[in-house]
């Protein structure tokens, strides 16, 4: 965990308003594990007391990349960042994805930015499999050529049918599972996206006896485990529940550990 001053190298619009921000952070980048995040102090936001958390998209050499969209106060301000600007970067933070158990079949399930958050994992996993990408519309489907270049079988669903199968990503998963041989290897799923999608993945993991690792997105405060803002309900072995911090014990959890409620995760 480091708190460093990072320099903006480059920022570009990918498509659909999604942007990639490249930052030079030599002391931080080598420590990034797949599924971890960084906490950004957005410049020119004096009235904001909190940093903004972002999944790491890519981390190579001394360059870190964040994929985001200007939708809120912080991210809209970030769209004005230009090469040479500097910002305070805290990270890498949290527990990322565990590596695949030998013999298991990996699948990836991603919604929206979740695709970027799974990229490092997709690259690192020793075995490639099917990657299910879902989004509202074609512009929300990201990074497909990159995942294909890594050897992943990318299958796409959009809610408006503008790209791939019409409907939710879970439809693709259900079709894939139905066509799959029942004596095939144990499935290990890695998911990042909206809470509703994560809950749907968790339900299938429960039903089909998969292992599922889900990366949750919670409102976050300090990012280091001190403020206890980003908690979610998790089961204990004794049958009770405890709050766990998505910034510290997470953001990646075993889906069976989470106490899900109507909002996705309580």
């Amino acid at each position: 965990m480091h708190c460093v001053t990072a320099e903006v190298i480059h920022q570009e619009v990918v498509h659909g308003g999604y942007r990639v921000l490249q930052l030079r952070a030599p002391d931080l980048v080598p420590h990034v594990q797949p599924g971890q995040f960084v906490h950004v102090r957005v410049p020119h936001m004096e009235a904001a007391v909190l940093r903004r958390p972002f999944s790491v998209y890519k981390a190579d050499g001394d360059v870190l990349q964040i994929l985001y969209k200007g939708v809120g106060k912080g991210t809209r301000t970030m769209t004005f960042l230009a090469p040479g600007d500097t910002l305070s970067l805290l990270g890498p933070l949290g527990h990322g994805f565990p590596t695949l158990q030998p013999g298991n079949d990996p699948i990836l399930i991603a919604g929206g930015y979740g695709m970027a958050a799974l990229y490092l994992l997709a690259r690192q996993l020793p075995v490639k499999g099917v990657a299910f990408f879902g989004g509202r519309s074609a512009p929300d489907i990201l990074c497909v050529p990159e995942f294909e270049a890594l050897g992943w079988d990318v299958r796409i669903a959009t809610e408006d049918g503008s790209l791939g199968t019409a409907g939710r990503v879970t439809v693709l998963m259900d079709d894939w599972w139905a066509a799959r041989s029942h004596d095939a290897a144990h499935v290990e799923a890695y998911a990042c996206g909206p809470n509703g999608m994560l809950q749907a993945v968790a339900a299938r993991a429960q039903q089909h006896d998969w292992t599922a690792w889900v990366s949750v997105d919670r409102n976050m405060g300090c990012g280091v485990g001190a403020c206890l803002t980003c908690v979610l309900k998790t089961r204990t072995p004794e049958g009770d529940w405890v709050w766990q911090r998505s910034c510290t014990e997470g953001p990646v959890f075993d889906s069976r550990q989470i106490v899900w409620d109507a909002e996705g995760a309580s």
Partner: peptide, 16 residues
């Protein structure tokens, strides 16, 4: 003590 249900914090102008 377990504490309150989320959301537990909310950012306000120059405040939390």
């Amino acid at each position: 003590t377990k504490g309150n249900p989320p959301p537990r914090t909310f950012e306000t102008p120059s405040g939390l």
